[in-house]
């Protein structure tokens, strides 16, 4: 991989730090009126999810990380691994629980997800911003109450539990914002 110098640092650049691929979340030049310039970078370790700040001297360089984001279709879970397929090449990859993390709550078969590959292995799975999931369990809906007040928990087909309005019934299909985990509307 290419090396990147501090003047090429930017948000979203993927680099190797202490042996792990990291994403630059925030890049800020620090330059006192009198004195040397530094670059302060907020980094996210893509393996562990840890975020921290590291400071680089101007002109320092770091190795790029072979990290690629690619859209893939979710196929199935075999009890241990989650399987995805590249719709163009039909190539399949399997992601473990570590890579899938909390995203498993929003994975519906045949939905398209963004898979982050590091040296061709999946290290993280990002579901679409909005998913449509069926309610498998919730208290009966209240008739006539279509807009106002109150909420209740509902369990969705993936096992995720979200707060929904009182008028929602079992079997309804809901639109959920996966970034916040919140109910948006009936689909």
């Amino acid at each position: 991989m290419a090396n990147y110098s501090t003047n090429q640092f930017k948000n979203g650049l993927k680099v190797m730090i202490d042996g792990d691929p990291c994403n630059m979340v925030d890049v800020e030049m620090v330059k006192p009126g009198k004195g040397q310039a530094f670059t302060r970078v907020k980094l996210k370790n893509l393996m562990t999810g840890r975020t921290w700040e590291r400071t680089f001297k101007s002109g320092d360089s770091v190795e790029g990380a072979d990290v690629m984001d690619t859209d893939m279709e979710y196929l199935y879970n075999d009890g241990e691994m989650w399987h995805f397929m590249d719709p163009a090449t039909y190539e399949q990859v399997a992601a473990d629980a570590n890579a899938v993390g909390d995203s498993h709550k929003w994975l519906k078969e045949q939905d398209s997800c963004m898979i982050t590959l590091f040296n061709d292995n999946p290290i993280s799975v990002t579901p679409p911003n909005f998913v449509e999931l069926e309610v498998t369990e919730t208290d009966p809906g209240l008739k006539g109450d279509t807009a106002q007040g109150g909420s209740k928990p509902a369990t969705l087909q993936t096992g995720a539990v979200v707060r929904v309005p009182l008028f929602i019934n079992q079997g309804d299909v809901l639109k959920i914002d996966t970034r916040t985990g919140e109910y948006v509307s009936r689909a």
């Binding site: 620090v30 006192p32 004195g35 530094f38 921290w52 590291r54 400071t55 001297k57 320092d60």
Partner: peptide, 21 residues
Amino acid sequence: HVDIDLDDDDRDTWLNLLMSH
């Protein structure tokens, strides 16, 4: 306080880092 890989024998460099960070 600062995660930095730096070898520098100028006191002012370190004073500046403490000042800015």
